[in-house]
């Protein structure tokens, strides 16, 4: 049974699109037929992160308006055979989405794919609502700071009240917490919230922690999901995240300060 997963946060700039790209890539790398949909109509970004922006001809709005078939709009990922991207429209706005159209697309995708990842726009308006409405599971992307946590809390409230599952009184959307841009050193120095602080407020199960790293920006600029980066702790953290999501029993890493080796300490390494 295909699963619809929304990647959402309320707040902008916390790493939703980065996560959508790497999470869907990770699912595909593990052999799952995966499609990732950009719901940020008007601010098309996912295709840039995935490095397929030059291959975008049609988009989700064309499919909703029945101008083309779904197949024509899907872009095959350049790195993974199992991964497809459904881009957002750059020229339209969120009002071009509608509930019937989105449902039709998702139902059609469910016939072919194992996982449908919905990259939500920021905010709590119609675009974000459309991205989450049909979700079975939700990845709540949160940065370790109060405003991001507050916005995630708001999104969780909306998921619990307005998602299709909630409206129909079915089993609620399964919620997962993903803390991104985490710096254990600064958390220990109380300069940012700790994972425990965040969980204390949001009270949902932790699925992963992605450390703060320069490799995210490098990956974005080169149009490659960061999960592909060699020797990057971010890539490892995203692979862990995917593993845990599909049932691997992996400990959460990158939450403790890196211990300096004996030599480094001796040499005053920092």
């Amino acid at each position: 049974m295909a699963k619809v997963i929304v990647v959402t946060s309320g707040k902008g700039g916390v790493g939703k699109t980065t996560t959508s790209a790497s999470f869907s890539t990770g699912l595909a790398m593990r052999g799952n037929r995966t499609v990732v949909i950009d719901f940020d109509v008007g601010l098309r970004n996912l295709d840039l992160i995935m490095g397929c922006e030059r291959r975008v001809v049609y988009d989700i709005i064309n499919v909703i308006n029945d101008e083309i078939s779904l197949k024509q709009a899907l872009i095959k990922d350049k790195n993974c055979d199992n991964l497809y991207i459904l881009p957002a429209s750059q020229t339209r706005d969120k009002d071009a989405l509608n509930i019937e159209g989105v449902e039709r697309i998702l139902n059609e995708l469910k016939e072919t794919f194992d996982y449908i990842v919905c990259d939500s726009p920021a905010g709590i308006e119609f675009g974000a609502f459309m991205a989450m409405y049909f979700a079975d599971e939700a990845l709540i992307v949160t940065n370790p700071e109060v405003s991001s946590v507050r916005d995630s809390d708001r999104i969780l409230g909306i998921l619990a009240a307005k998602s299709k599952r909630a409206v129909e009184g079915r089993e609620p959307v399964r919620e997962h917490l993903l803390v991104t841009r985490y710096d254990p050193k600064r958390a220990n120095a109380r300069e940012m919230m700790s994972v425990a602080d965040i969980q204390e407020i949001l009270r949902i199960p932790l699925l992963g922690v992605i450390p703060e790293s320069v490799s995210v920006l490098q990956a974005s600029n080169s149009g490659m999901p960061v999960i592909h980066m060699e020797k990057s702790d971010v890539a490892e953290a995203y692979r862990d995240l995917v593993g845990r999501f599909i049932g691997d029993d992996l400990p959460i890493r990158f939450v403790d300060e890196e211990k300096l080796g004996f030599l480094k300490r001796l040499l005053g390494g920092r």
Partner: peptide, 24 residues
């Protein structure tokens, strides 16, 4: 949990909440 932005009104009644009530 009662989350930020949510508003619960017990009209003409008492209200009991068994989970956290977050800021906002």
């Amino acid at each position: 949990p009662v989350r930020t932005g949510q508003r619960i009104y017990a009209e003409g009644a008492n209200l009991v909440v068994l989970a956290i009530v977050n800021a906002g």
